[in-house]
């Protein structure tokens, strides 16, 4: 067995969240360069404020502004920062007890080396230049020198609207591997072949091969080369534009049951007006020029009518 195919894959999206009344107070404060905590039932001040009291489970209603200077409670050294962290050079994460708060808060501390940080050291907020009501409005923390100019960090007045939501971009990178069966399928495509696999128990032919027969739960091992002709079992006409769409609607996306296969593959139907496509229509694969082939289903542009008579419904009724 040759090694599976792999490809880099990036998953990127935004989480858009509403924040509720408690976090709104905290995040609005950040935007306005203020640190707002909440008073817990036992009298302690928590920064950030939890939405509900950890003991009484009642919503927090009393809010308290705390100092922007605090004390490091614990820290760890980040020798190899990962993307998205507040600093792209080695730094420390620290739990910091801000003056007037009773619960430590996590943020990044900008110091040149692990030798420059110790538990108990005094640090202060470094505000981001542009703030929108998110935790990264605090760019990071920095050592608070004894002779610090406190006036320099006087809070800005905040009379803007309360923050009601945040957007958190997520950007994940993977090395995505195909299964060995899928790899066989994609390598076949690179040679202009369509390769499925047969279940040793029920003898159904799956294309693309799946690694296990979903009916019997046994590994599929016998390769089966399939012809490039098949039958449209069902289809839909895409009329709705969407992000990332590569062709202009309307177009037809169909399930094509290759001759000899037991499961249909999804692809485009070409060379025929959308309103003339029908269940049972006989079609053949339209391959791109050979020099453009790779280990991808995109080697096939789509399927076009062969002109043969339509297949009987009974011939594909079990494959819908």
């Amino acid at each position: 067995m040759t090694s599976p195919l792999t490809a880099p894959m990036r998953v990127s999206f935004d989480y858009t969240r509403s924040v509720g009344p408690v976090l709104s107070k905290f995040l609005t404060g950040l935007r306005d360069q203020r640190l707002i905590g909440g008073r817990l039932a036992d009298g302690r001040v928590a920064v950030p404020p939890p939405e509900y009291d950890p003991q009484t489970h009642l919503a927090l209603t009393e809010f308290v502004e705390v100092g922007q200077t605090g004390t490091v409670v614990t820290w760890s050294w980040v020798s190899e920062p990962v993307p998205g962290q507040p600093l792209d050079r080695p730094f420390a994460y620290a739990l910091v007890l801000f003056d007037g708060s009773d619960t430590p808060m996590l943020h990044a501390l900008d110091v040149p080396s692990a030798d420059a940080v110790r538990t108990g050291m005094r640090v202060r907020v470094r505000w981001a230049e542009e703030r929108s009501g998110v935790i990264t409005d605090i760019a990071c923390l920095e050592p608070a020198d004894a002779d610090a100019d406190v006036a320099a960090q006087a809070p800005a007045t905040g009379d803007g609207e309360a923050v009601t939501g945040i957007i958190t971009p997520v950007d994940l990178h993977y090395t995505y591997a195909a299964s060995s069966e899928e790899s066989t399928f994609f390598r076949g495509l690179a040679e202009g072949r369509l390769i499925g696999q047969r279940c040793p128990t029920c003898h159904k032919v799956y294309v693309p091969p799946r690694g296990a027969c979903p009916v019997d739960g046994v590994a599929t091992i016998e390769d089966v080369e399939l012809p490039h002709t098949g039958t449209v079992t069902t289809f839909c006409i895409v009329n709705v534009p969407f992000l990332g769409q590569r062709i202009d609607p309307p177009y037809v996306s169909a399930y094509v049951l290759l001759d000899g296969a037991d499961i249909a593959i999804q692809h485009l139907i070409l060379d025929i007006p959308a309103d003339e496509v029908r269940m049972g229509m006989r079609v053949e694969a339209v391959w791109r020029p050979r020099e453009e082939w790779g280990t991808t289903i995109e080697n096939i542009n789509g399927f076009r009518p062969t002109g043969e008579p339509d297949a009987d419904f009974a011939s594909f009724a079990q494959h819908l």
């Binding site: 924040v19 950030p48 614990t74 820290w75 760890s76 998205g84 962290q85 994460y93 620290a94 996590l106």
Partner: peptide, 27 residues
Amino acid sequence: LALQLDPYTLTPLWPDTVSLAGLQARL
């Protein structure tokens, strides 16, 4: 694994699991 953290005040800082464990160990 930063995606398992509080989505408002922690995940946007992307604290990695090793760094968080370091905070706990030092305490």
